[in-house]
């Protein structure tokens, strides 16, 4: 299948457990071993208590649609997903927010609602890259 979106570039060393986890259909999040803060995006020191010991947990994959947009055109030549499509900010049950797409839903601003429950869907692009996309919960 033709890859319909830009591949993540660069894939940084501190995010390796995130990308490794996705290949096994797991959504992994960094968690501070000192204060327990679960955060996004991956970095070498905790943004809350600033210590260096960072571990990883498997997230539930559940969350809510914190904010969204409906794209009527592509904003990057390599992004070939057919418009209209939903650009989404997801608030994960574990706390952090990440950007993604809401799929398996009609891209209609009249029916999409902020705070609607969503769940992760794993979308394999290449042998190396699987992306976490989201769909309405309980589909």
């Amino acid at each position: 299948m033709e890859i319909d979106r830009p591949l993540p570039n660069p894939m940084t060393p501190e995010a390796k457990p995130f990308w490794d986890g996705l290949r096994e259909q797991k959504l992994m999040l960094p968690k501070c071993q000192a204060c327990g803060h679960v955060f996004w995006y991956p970095r070498v020191a905790c943004p809350k208590c600033h210590t260096r010991g960072i571990g990883w947990i498997q997230a539930s994959g559940r969350g809510t649609l914190h904010a969204f947009e409906v794209g009527y055109q592509a904003f990057n030549k390599a992004f070939k997903v057919e418009p209209p499509y939903v650009l989404a900010m997801i608030e994960l049950a574990e706390g952090p927010r990440m950007l993604s797409n809401l799929i398996n839903v009609e891209a209609d601003p009249r029916t999409l609602k902020c705070d609607m429950p969503v769940e992760v869907v794993f979308s394999k692009l290449t042998d190396e890259v699987t992306l976490p996309l989201f769909q309405p919960a309980g589909r």
Binding site: A15, Y41, A67, F75, V81, M98, L99
Partner: peptide
Amino acid sequence: GQFEAPFGFGPAPTMFGLITTR
């Protein structure tokens, strides 16, 4: 490049819309 572009995010309109819908 790593966490935004693969989902179609990029220039400012794709970010300000999120602020606006919230």
